[in-house]
Write a protein that binds this DNA or RNA. Structure first.
Length: 390
DNA sequence: TCTGGGGTCCTAGGACCC
DNA sequence: TCTGGGGTCCTAGGACCC
């Protein structure tokens, strides 16, 4: 039996902004859109959604804003129709990353087995922690788990001033669902026995891994809740979703998930992309396009350098004005981190893509990563390490 | 006036090799 | 002259997640 926690920061970006601007507490606020010129943050009043023009989506909404029906991922123009007077703040990712490190360090000081799941959530394996405690062995491990969860929430609040929600269950899948049940500030424990009453009534969309496409197709089969999915014939799911995904869905709906908490994983790719203020014409806006393209390559090269990687596969991504996306990639003989080499390879990819429409987005990606110094280090550490023959 | 930017994983076909 | 089965790498697209 494992004790797995999922911790999710409550309205993370918005909550960080409220620390800076406490006068906004209790107001409907969303984060999103492009960085405006200095005015917004220095002035005493804040821009509202109805004043915004341009592209962008909401990345986070305060709970007061969510009451108007706006949510993350929603286009700002659409949100402005629903909640015109909601305040709009631009995202400050450097600041969010700083708070991300703060809260993760605070958790790590309590329980070290952490899996990073992005800027505002983590999984924590509490199994050893729960069983190492003398009290838990003979007593009630679930109540011990609840105590640990509460102390993690306190640690996060003390370190950051922010609140988080935690779910603790026997696996990652259930914990992810549980942490969402009593937001904000919730601490939700679910055992095997709670699945039927607390998980099965939920929409299939709540399962991490069932997105908009899969849930729409499930609905066509008459399956809307996780309980209905759990009781569906596995053969039916396999027939419609394939052997692997269909079987997984059925397991997930029944609350079964053996995935371990993964403490460290190597990055697979590093990329940069940008959506233009207005769609650019491949011929008429050629100069501007080339400039942005080269700049993206330099940024990716800088990211690689900073993180200590080089890559063999260079990829290009274009999104046209009709939102159709195409990608091209090519694999080099040697891994590179050089901006010029990336630019040349990506430029060659660009020649393989149709340029007959306006372009909305361009992106550059480097994959098949390796660490240039890695084998040297390995060799030198091998040299220091006594072998059988020493 | 729709729809950001950073990722991961899966599938599927073709090339190529044994 | 016809025919196998596996394995790996490469490429393109798509679903999904935060």
């Amino acid at each position: 039996m494992r004790f797995i926690a999922h911790l999710d920061m409550d309205a993370f970006y918005a909550s960080v902004e409220l620390l800076r601007h406490p006068q906004l507490c209790g107001k409907a606020v969303v984060i999103g859109g492009r960085r405006r010129t200095v005015d917004a943050l220095s002035s005493t009043s804040f821009p509202t959604l109805k004043e915004y023009t341009g592209r962008g989506v909401i990345t986070t909404a305060t709970y007061e804003a969510r009451a108007f029906g706006v949510h993350s991922g929603m286009g700002l123009m659409k949100a402005a129709q629903l909640a015109p007077d909601t305040l709009l703040l631009p995202a400050d990712f450097d600041e969010y990353r700083r708070y991300s490190r703060l809260f993760k360090d605070a958790v790590r000081a309590v329980a070290s087995q952490i899996e990073d799941r992005g800027i505002d959530e983590i999984y924590i394996d509490l199994t050893d922690f729960v069983f190492d405690s003398a009290a838990a062995v003979t007593d009630k491990p679930w109540s011990r788990a609840r105590d640990v969860g509460a102390s993690i929430q306190r640690a996060v609040r003390d370190a950051t001033g922010l609140s988080c929600s935690i779910g603790i269950t026997p696996n990652k899948l259930l914990s992810k669902i549980a942490s969402d049940l009593e937001k904000p500030g919730g601490l939700t424990i679910l055992t095997e026995a709670d699945i039927a009453t607390r998980v099965w009534p939920l929409a299939v969309r709540k399962v991490n891994g069932i997105g908009p496409k899969a849930s729409a197709r499930l609905e066509m089969l008459g399956i809307r809740s996780i309980g209905e999915l759990a009781k569906a014939a596995p053969s039916l799911l396999v027939e419609h979703f394939g052997k692997s995904y269909g079987a997984w869905m059925h397991e997930a709906a029944n609350g079964r998930d053996e995935r371990p908490v993964v403490i460290f994983s190597e990055p697979k790719s590093i990329s940069r992309e940008t959506t233009f203020e207005r769609d650019l014409h491949p011929v008429r806006d050629r100069e501007q396009l080339t400039g942005i393209f080269t700049e993206l390559c330099m940024k990716v090269a800088a990211d690689l350098q900073r993180k200590g990687y080089v890559g063999k596969t260079i990829g290009l991504k274009l999104r046209y004005d009709n939102f159709k996306t195409v990608t091209r990639d090519c694999t080099l003989d040697e891994a590179t981190g050089d901006a010029g080499a990336i630019r040349r390879a990506a430029g060659a990819c660009l020649k393989r893509v149709p340029l007959d429409r306006r372009i909305r987005l361009i992106g550059v990606r480097v994959g098949s990563l390796s660490q240039p110094g890695a084998d040297i280090q390995e060799r030198s550490s091998a040299a220091r390490t006594p072998t059988l023959f020493d």
